[in-house]
Design a protein around this nucleic acid. Structure first.
Lengths: 190, 190
DNA sequence: CACTAAGCGGGGACTGTCTCCGTTTAGTGT
DNA sequence: ACACTAAACGGAGACAGTCCCCGCTTAGTG
């Protein structure tokens, strides 16, 4: 086993400050926020930032792990409370809405879901995929979800809906319509 | 009337070289291709590029006008050949596929469809929106399209589908499934 | 309290965007 | 042919961002 010696106190301090500042920065400027600027605002050198988080993706993910994790948990809650079809619909709703409300999270969801070679196979992304898989499979067994849809498709489509909704900045109702369209489309052919 | 004096010969030459090179560059490196590099490859200074095309958007659009225009024309062709519902479905199919095949066109479609204040109200984007509107309205009159969908929604959703498909680089069949899901979702509630 | 490796941080190389302005040249009138 | 001028050129350079390297600092240990 990899003997993980605990982080030095200063390292831990910086790590946490960076996360806090990063979350603010992403919220304020979107996923493109300047990394050097985040480092500066956290009062550390850029070297420190890049050592802790080698890529923008890594930082983005670290800043939002809790939300992703919460979403994965939520999937199982809904799965326990509702019939599979409804659980999936409701979860997709929360997923899309959440993704849009938190600037920067859309980018994260997107990258977690590519199958490009260098895809960041992030731990929490995996959680999410597994949670989605459980909902999808249950709904398919029940017959309320098209059979030709894979779990990963659902996540990609959620990303697509979030993207479409973003284009409709001015129209607050768009997201509701787009999510409903997605869930309608997911039902088996008549 | 704005008396448009014809471009000077050298200006026209450069304009055309730039377009040609830009199309290649976008195809090769995606929408993010370096503009200075395009200028260099076209054998002109960057000043010349920026004078002809003040923004990346402008260049992108100029490089793809013909395709956008063709798509608008195609909408009317389909509208004349097929019953409205089918025409819309078929057009969406061609739109999504075309958008994905041509790197950089997705970005263009996206920007043509935002209603943010500074939206580039591009001439050819308008053509496209009008073409879409004709198909959408016909299909709604016929009753084969949900009544709560606006023409612009259809374009945004196409952009969303293209985005989702892009995430599935490895999976050639994804796009078909996603488009079919979109068209299913667009049908009126049962 | 001294030692050492973990950690820091900012200077600097590099890439890209976009503007400014001195220089060049196409088109025109003579 | 030639001179003139407005149009167009082009590249230097200011600026912003990313990311690495390596000499310096400091937390944790015996």
């Amino acid at each position: 086993m990899t003997q993980v010696r605990p982080m030095r106190a200063d390292a831990r301090r910086n790590y946490e400050r960076l996360l806090k500042v990063a979350a603010e920065a992403f919220a304020e400027h979107g996923e493109g926020a300047s990394l050097d600027d985040i480092a500066k605002r956290a009062g550390v050198g850029s070297g420190t930032l890049y050592r802790h988080f080698p890529t923008r993706q890594a930082l983005l993910e670290a800043a939002y792990v809790d939300r992703i994790e919460a979403l994965a948990v939520r999937a199982d809650e809904l799965g326990a409370e509702l019939p599979p079809g409804e659980a999936l619909v409701e979860w997709l709703n929360e997923l899309c809405v959440g993704t849009i409300q938190v600037r920067g999270m859309k980018a994260l969801l997107g990258s977690a879901v590519t199958d490009g070679s260098a895809a960041a196979v992030t731990a929490c992304g995996t959680n999410m995929k597994e949670a989605a898989a459980r909902l999808v499979e249950a709904a398919q067994r029940e017959g309320t979800l098209r059979a030709d849809i894979e779990p990963i498709d659902v996540l990609r489509l959620a990303h697509g809906v979030a993207t479409a909704s973003e284009l409709a900045k001015g129209d607050r109702s768009a997201i509701r319509r787009y999510v409903s369209l997605l869930t309608e489309g997911l039902r088996p052919a008549r």
